[in-house]
Design a protein around this nucleic acid. Sequence first.
DNA 1: CTACATCCTCTAGCGACTAGAGGTGCAAGA
DNA 2: TCTTGCACCTCTAGTCGCTAGAGGATGTAG
Lengths: 140, 140
Amino acid sequence: MKKITIGEAARRSGVKVPTVRYYESIGLLAAPSRSEGNQRSFEPADISRLAFIRHARELGFEIEAIRTLLTLQDDPHQSCASADAIAKARLVEVEQRIRSLMALKAELETMVEGCGHGRVDQCRVIEVLADHGQCTHTRH
Amino acid sequence: MKKITIGEAARRSGVKVPTVRYYESIGLLAAPSRSEGNQRSFEPADISRLAFIRHARELGFEIEAIRTLLTLQDDPHQSCASADAIAKARLVEVEQRIRSLMALKAELETMVEGCGHGRVDQCRVIEVLADHGQCTHTRH
DNA sequence: CTACATCCTCTAGCGACTAGAGGTGCAAGA
DNA sequence: TCTTGCACCTCTAGTCGCTAGAGGATGTAG
């Protein structure tokens, strides 16, 4: 097996080089073996792990949640109830966030549409910001 | 006019006490006058400004954008084109974010639904994370 | 052999706060 | 008047998940 450098690992996993080192530093990735010249030498399994982490990060999971998911992956005989719970919690968060962003979107649209493109004292953007009471969607 | 303490200002504006001090420290809010005992004494205008900032933050505007919006508010004879542009840019960001969260939501739902509530080696949550190729929505 | 890309470690910085230490001011009850 | 106890003060450091840069070593292609 030929050695995989950190640059190669980064390219294959889609995680940036400094981020790979960062993940190692926080113990999310085991410290790989080193070459004679002290350069990291990764295994294919490390690439999969990095890809796993990257995918989970893209899905918005926090590092600590990923840590748990990884220990679950490492021991496939465990119950997947924790993984399920983590994913469900994340789903609830995402749904919440979408709802809140939809409300923001509506408010921003009102602001932008109301802008007469004139001077600030007739501008709805500034006015709405100054007075929350004008919001169509008060819950945010 | 009676003095408004920082606690009172915080309660009225909905901004937390340390955050008020933080906004002062970064120059978003002018340093208020002080009492004999060196305690901050706010004016009603400060409360409005804090409420403005809070509302803008809730809408996801960055501090630097808010700084610009505040200078516009301070000089109502300026053109509101900048305010308009800032709000529009924010709207585009929000729309983008909503789209991406919708894709995440779909993927998380697939994961959670596919979970057989058994052991990890049959768990779709772990499996999908490990292999991005299984995503229904590849663009995220 | 010499460029030059890539690697190494280390520290500091980002945004927008938040937490805590260690101390002072102030209003109200005993 | 004293004391209790909360609210205030400044300052530093920590949060999250990286990212940037300094200053140097290694590895590879021509």
